Amino acid sequence: MSTSVQPPANAKARRQQRIMAALRAAPAIRIVELATEFEVSTETIRRDLDELGQAGLIARTYGGAARPVASEPAIVERERLMVAERRRIAVAAARLVGSSEAIMLGGGSTTLKVARQLAGSLTRATIVTHGFAHAAALAANPNVRVLMVPGRYEPSEGIVVGAETVDHVGRFHAEVAIVGASGITLAGAADVDDEAAAVYRAMRLCADRVLTVADHGKFGRPAFAIHAELAEMGHLVTDQPPPEPLARALAMAEVQVTVAA
């Protein structure tokens, strides 16, 4: 009986994905333990960690690696960053929304650009959101019905979050959910705030399809709370092609990627 041998590139990609998964479960990992688990040499693991560290996906430590935590400025500050890039993303995302009439819209600076674009392009829709600025932008279109979910107000982000927010989102069904991300790594799309991530996750689970909108600055940037593994991200709309090994992992996860022109 013959056995097939996986190509080294695929074996390395899968191993690195498992390393990232291990860091999701524990704040730190050690080279010796990984080498034993994957049945490879410590030098192989060390090279994996060096590569992931150079890509900004992990924080290298003596004898292993740790999970770095990203932070973000307030939304009013992020609004001034990558304005042209996010505008292109918003135009592409609105085009992909098409004639959908039931939409979930997550909070964030990139999704706010999408809200403004949708306000000018939709002819009829009901949109559920937890972002106050998003609701205000959409309300400029009399053909858009905006439903604001309840919850605890987070002033730095202009959104509501919490158990009540998640519960209320779960009462709806949408054709499409549009969510952002503080970072996208081999582990998936994540947000710096775990409560915001819970809302994005709830929106994703209530929708037929998902658009994840994020500029290239989010690639390889770890964040605290993962709201979608790569295979759950749906359709990624961005302004530049993702770098390797993230591009390879997205392809393996069958994530469709649209690079806004």
Score class of each variant (00 low, 15 high):
227 H>Y: 14
193 D>R: 09
57 L>E: 15
81 L>K: 12
176 V>H: 07
172 F>P: 00
110 T>P: 07
207 A>Y: 10
232 E>S: 02
100 S>A: 15
249 A>R: 09
250 L>G: 00
177 A>W: 10
36 T>S: 13
229 E>N: 06
219 F>M: 09
177 A>H: 07
35 A>H: 05
129 T>F: 13
171 R>C: 05
181 A>F: 05
204 R>I: 13
228 A>I: 04
116 R>G: 08
233 M>R: 05
124 R>A: 13
176 V>I: 15
254 E>G: 04
87 R>Y: 13
230 L>S: 00
131 G>D: 12
119 A>K: 05
2 S>V: 03
215 D>K: 07
158 G>T: 03
9 A>F: 08
257 V>S: 02
230 L>Q: 01
191 D>C: 00
137 A>Y: 04
118 L>F: 04
85 E>C: 03
79 E>A: 08
205 L>F: 01
194 D>F: 14
248 R>D: 14
163 A>W: 05
108 G>D: 01
3 T>G: 02
32 V>T: 15
158 G>I: 03
42 T>G: 06
225 A>R: 04
39 E>T: 03
229 E>D: 09
188 G>P: 00
221 R>A: 01
252 M>I: 13
140 A>W: 11
70 A>K: 06
261 A>S: 09
260 A>N: 00
25 A>T: 11
106 G>R: 10
132 F>L: 14
245 P>C: 05
10 N>V: 15
14 R>G: 00
183 G>C: 04
105 L>Y: 04
183 G>H: 05
106 G>M: 08
12 K>T: 15
165 T>C: 13
87 R>K: 12
248 R>V: 11
139 A>K: 05
36 T>M: 12
251 A>C: 12
36 T>A: 15
121 S>F: 08
145 R>I: 08
86 R>N: 13
112 L>F: 01
177 A>S: 10
76 V>D: 14
22 A>E: 07
64 G>L: 07
182 S>V: 04
71 S>G: 09
136 A>N: 03
1 M>D: 01
134 H>T: 01
130 H>P: 03
177 A>C: 06
76 V>P: 01
